[in-house]
Design a protein around this nucleic acid. Structure first.
Length: 152
DNA sequence: GCCAACGTTGGC
DNA sequence: GCCAACGTTGGC
């Protein structure tokens, strides 16, 4: 089973928002690399929920894939900020899975900490070139280290 | 608010 | 196909 990391701005949609839902489509992603990761996510796989653009950016908890990727409906909606005129229902460009809340960690594992911890420094969010990627994969070892930090 | 980094667009 | 210009992300 693969592991993932999904970024979101807590003011827009944070882990507390997800917690209040049964499941939620992870829509609005408009980057091909991130999209390809979304399309690779399998039912039941878990990911870290990462809070970005906030006071303390970092990993705050865990989510799980509740439904595998399907065409993101917002690309067809002219009133959506995610509307894409080049996408049609016959040839969709953007896909989203649905995710569900699993748990909130007792503390935030901060980006600052991730950058300083041996074994985590190759994570996308910790590198210059991939730091902006909103959906990335996480190795088993990275998953283990971050989970350990969250409970330390 | 600043700026580094990357993606996309469009002229040629 | 190249590349300049612009837009967006997101840490700091």
């Amino acid at each position: 089973m693969a592991r993932w990391l999904l970024k979101s701005e807590p003011e827009t949609f944070g882990i507390e928002h997800l917690k209040a839902k049964v499941s939620e489509p992870w829509d609005g992603v408009r980057n091909y690399t991130a999209r390809n990761n979304l399309m690779a996510m399998k039912l039941g796989e878990e990911g870290f929920f990462y809070h970005s653009s906030c006071e303390v950016p970092g990993v705050v908890g865990v989510l799980r894939v509740a439904r595998e990727a399907f065409p993101d409906p917002t690309q067809f909606d002219p009133n959506s900020k995610y509307f894409d005129a080049k996408a049609t229902p016959e040839t969709p460009r953007w896909f989203c899975p649905e995710v569900e809340y699993v748990k909130t960690f007792p503390r935030v594992v901060t980006l600052r900490e991730i950058k300083q911890t041996p074994g985590l420094q190759d994570m996308a969010i910790a590198t210059k070139s991939w730091s902006r990627l909103s959906v990335s994969s996480v190795s088993d070892k990275e998953w283990e280290i971050i989970t350990e930090l969250a409970y330390s």
